[in-house]
């Protein structure tokens, strides 16, 4: 046991993160609307010291001249602060439980929210994809809000079958891949909407972001599925049993594989986007639908 109440601290961080993200959303939404009318390529990111060595490309950033840019700056600061708070909530929850904080659906939702926010911050740096910020923040708010209101469970020990190193690895990979899939799905929707509106294809920043994110997410998801199989072998004596959870993990994987193939197929870009979204919907269904509605060996939702 810890000497201070880490669980309550975690809950307080969650509440503050919800507040900060809400404020950020209030600021970002009009900023995005304004900047859309002015310039399409205003970058979201505050300048970050170059990590990739010298670059001789001309800076994408321009001096903050519009009010919208100042608004966006404030919103961006809010996103960063909210992200830090929700990460602290995850850490405190882990300390309170004395284990990796992803043992039930509430913790999965909490850690997942943090992961989505972090993934977005990492991959939106240096890219003119500021228009995605309000959508991402809204999504994180929904996920965090749902977790707190309907999935909340007090800190507790795990049931014995979940007490495994492979669980830590498997679920961590699933959360990381899921967060990237989420950013990928948002970027893909933005890309499809833009194409429909006839945006010029020369600078498809949303498509580029989606592509990068999916390339990273797919192997991580593959690893999550494999780690899950190793765990299942260790716990139940078979590494694959077409349990509903396994089945939907497989469906997700296959849709994203189809997406990657479609990217290399001429004339299939739009369909590639739709396949990525199908994969994301399968992923979502695995988290919400399967946990809550379909009985199976993975019924540990704890709600």
């Amino acid at each position: 046991m810890t000497s201070f109440d880490a669980a309550a601290l975690s809950d307080a961080f969650v509440t503050s993160a919800l507040a900060v993200f809400s404020l950020a959303l209030v600021v970002l939404a009009p900023a995005a609307a304004l900047s859309r009318t002015r310039t399409r390529t205003a970058p979201l990111s505050v300048p970050v010291p170059a990590l990739e060595g010298p670059r001789d490309a001309p800076a994408l950033r321009s001096a903050p001249t519009h009010g919208s840019t100042r608004l966006a700056g404030a919103g961006q600061a809010g996103v960063v602060l909210g992200t830090i708070l929700v990460c602290l909530a995850v850490v405190a929850r882990g300390v309170a439980a004395g284990r990796a904080p992803w043992g039930n659906m509430y913790e999965f939702g909490l850690t997942g929210s943090a992961a989505v926010a972090v993934a977005f911050l990492i991959y939106s740096r240096r890219r003119p994809v500021g228009g995605l910020a309000p959508w991402t923040v809204a999504l994180v708010l929904v996920l965090l809000g749902v977790s707190v209101t309907s999935l909340y469970t007090p800190v507790d020990d795990l049931v014995p079958v979940l007490n495994s190193r492979w669980l830590v690895v498997h679920v961590a990979a699933a959360i990381a891949a899921g967060a990237l899939f989420t950013v990928g799905a948002l970027a893909t929707v933005a890309q499809l909407v833009r194409q429909r509106r006839g945006g010029n294809d020369q600078e498809d920043h949303f498509g580029a972001l989606a592509h990068t994110v999916h390339l990273v997410a797919f192997p991580i998801w593959t690893f999550a599925v494999i780690a899950g199989a190793v765990w299942a072998e260790n716990a139940w004596g078979r590494y694959w049993g077409w349990d509903p959870k396994e089945t939907w993990a497989f469906i997700t994987w296959v849709f994203y594989a189809a997406h990657l193939h479609a990217l290399s197929t001429v004339g299939w870009r739009r369909r590639a986007g739709l396949l990525a979204i199908a994969g994301f919907l399968a992923f979502l269904f695995n988290f919400f639908g399967v946990n809550l509605w379909i009985p199976g060996l993975h019924s540990y939702a704890g709600v």
Binding site: I251, V254, F255, A257, A258, H261, A262, T265, W268, R271, L275, A278, A282
Partner: peptide, 8 residues
């Protein structure tokens, strides 16, 4: 791609 979608 068609077969992959079918498999899913």
């Amino acid at each position: 791609i068609v077969l992959l979608v079918l498999l899913a």
